[in-house]
Design a protein around this nucleic acid. Sequence first.
DNA 1: TTTTGAGTTGTTCGA
DNA 2: GTCGAACAACTCAAA
Length: 440
Amino acid sequence: MTTALLWFRRDLRLADHPALLAARDAADEVVPVFVLDDVLLKSASPVRVGFLVQALTDLRSRTDGALRIVQGAPADVIPDLVQRSGASSVHISSDYGPYGSRRDAAVKAALGKVPLVATGSPYGVSPGTLLKDDGTPYRVYTPFLKAWRARGVHSPALTPRSVTWSDGGLRTDALPAAPEPVIEATEAAALARWTQFRDTDLESYHEIRDLPGVDRTSRLSPYLKWGLLHPRTLHADLGSSAGAEVYGKELVWRDFYADVLHHQPQTAREDLNPLPLEYDEPGALFEAWKQGRTGYPIVDAGMRQLLAQGWVHNRVRMIVASFLTKDLHVWWPHGGRHFMQHLLDADLASNQHGWQWTAGTGTDASPYFRVFNPVTQGRKFDPSGDYIRRWVPELRELSEKHIHEPWTCERPPADYPARVVDHAAERQESLDRYQRARGK
DNA sequence: TTTTGAGTTGTTCGA
DNA sequence: GTCGAACAACTCAAA
């Protein structure tokens, strides 16, 4: 009897899972394991831990209770489990993040003669695959997309009819206590969410995706982050509408940012294209932003949604990010860290590079003049004010006319904060700082 | 090596 | 109210 270990990380599913197929083909029985890594857990908010716990509980029942959940450092835990179970190989999906790739290198070294076999990755096209003709990586999205399409995404992997799961005689630790997740964290729920989105909203995605009050985006990002779904599954099932075209491109952004971060891991903490901009230290204004008390309704709605749900509509993410960087002049990593802490879908590559896009120091052409006006954005993308009413109860009674600018009311709601800064003045300040940075 | 065209998501102002 | 132009200069990708 031969045994293979299948070490789950960001691939918490059984369908379309190449590493699972590799493990099954490598041995008679498969021992599924998950390592509760302190390094990753300590930075996760309770809502995010809740999502992970439910996903693991589901995976455990679907592996006939075999899934072993073990606390500790992977470089200690995995070799120990291999020894105790007598496994002859360990199977993983590649992780291309800065921490994940270092961790896997350490585990590989610690395993010695037992191979750590990487099959597949969480991306449609794995980081490092696409290079320009001169052999260097892409730094601009559109050419990357072109190359991505020319290569084409693989078809989904078959789901194995049966796998002989085994617990390998190993112990399992208790899952951490965590609240019920706000969205159901099971593979079945992920697939159901996809088919529902595909059948009802995908076709018009390009028209309604920017409207946070309508809120008909796919909401698949937490599933993609943890790998309850693989983007390959979605690409294969998109069909050919205008909405599907735009949605597919959004999925490729995820691959692009992972590729950029893979080649330049330092951009998890630093600007890809540094500019000598003057920044303000985060203080009381930063706190107001985090609490959703800036006095700008759409900004506050977004920041409150983040705290309540661990999820924010994409359009609103850009608005609040622009506000922090361009109106409050705070360096993006401060905001990035807050997002990473609270977002259910917290993906290092997409998050850090999304922020850098807003800050004008990332892969974008960084047009200095792109400063979002929170009032204009609110009127344009939440014209009725419904999104604001949902998240800012103090403003519920305000009309469409006033809800984006409560300070224009005859008697502004007393319990809603006054504007912490004047947007027009801070916009000019941002442009001035940009000008000075260019001059240096 | 040089050249050319293009670069996710905006705002304001004035005609 | 609508619409086009201006807001800079630079880097990237590919021919």
